[in-house]
């Protein structure tokens, strides 16, 4: 087994990540403004930006879902318990003892088990929750005449706001996690250059060197 610099994030993934980050920041700021937590923007500006950002994000997700399934990259997010305990133990104790992170990225497992589970939950629970509730919210005037519409809107708003708070918590932990390990920069760079240290099997190394020389340094 050899640790090599391998391109684990393709150009599309990096584009996806950073544009998603930007859109989520916009949605957070405008969304909490609409909720009345701040008045940095007028309500009209906030609604316009929030809606535009939401539709852009939906489009981005449409592309990313297509990409995940056509490139088989969805397999990175299959949940596993293998190694989970070590990762949990590291963040709870080992990190304070100056231990190194127990997880080594593999070519077909670029996330540690905790990461994979967290991202999976984000993808299949939290994101659908916020965009389904958001679309129902946005198109309220199409269904306002059904019985109990106000109560339903009340619940939709509750779910939408609740999901927003949860995503904010995720973002906070996500950013904090970047500071663990070697350095903040080392965690961020792979999402910019695409390259990170990956534990390759001799076969993978040989394959990449021969057939995908641009992916390995």
């Amino acid at each position: 087994m050899a640790i090599r610099r391998v391109r684990i994030f393709t150009l599309f993934e990096r584009f996806w990540h950073w544009s998603q980050m930007f859109l989520i920041v916009v949605l957070m700021i405008t969304g909490f403004g609409l909720h009345g937590f701040h008045h940095l923007l007028t309500f009209e500006q906030a609604v316009t930006l929030h809606t535009l950002a939401a539709f852009s994000l939906l489009l981005l997700w449409a592309f990313s879902i297509f990409w995940l399934f056509t490139t088989r990259n969805w397999r990175h997010f299959i949940p596993t318990v293998k190694g989970m305990w070590q990762v949990l133990r590291f963040y709870s104790f080992g990190i304070f003892q100056g231990e190194h992170h127990p997880y080594r990225k593999a070519y077909w497992r670029k996330h540690n088990p905790l990461q994979a589970l967290a991202y999976l939950m984000l993808k299949i629970v939290l994101f659908p929750l916020i965009w389904v509730s958001g679309l129902i919210y946005l198109f309220y005037f199409l269904w306002r005449d059904i019985p109990h519409a106000t109560q339903i809107l009340d619940s939709v708003a509750l779910i939408h706001t609740g999901a927003a708070f949860t995503i904010l918590v995720f973002v906070m932990i996500h950013i904090y996690m970047l500071t663990t390990g070697h350095s903040f920069k080392e965690h961020v760079m792979p999402m910019i250059t695409g390259f990170d240290d990956v534990d390759l099997s001799p076969e993978e190394e040989a394959y990449l060197l021969k057939d995908e020389p641009g992916v390995i340094r």
Binding site: H35, G36, F43, T150, L153, D154
Partner: peptide, 10 residues
């Protein structure tokens, strides 16, 4: 009888 974003909160 209405829920209005910006006015109403849970």
């Amino acid at each position: 009888g209405i829920y209005m974003p910006g006015r109403d909160h849970n």
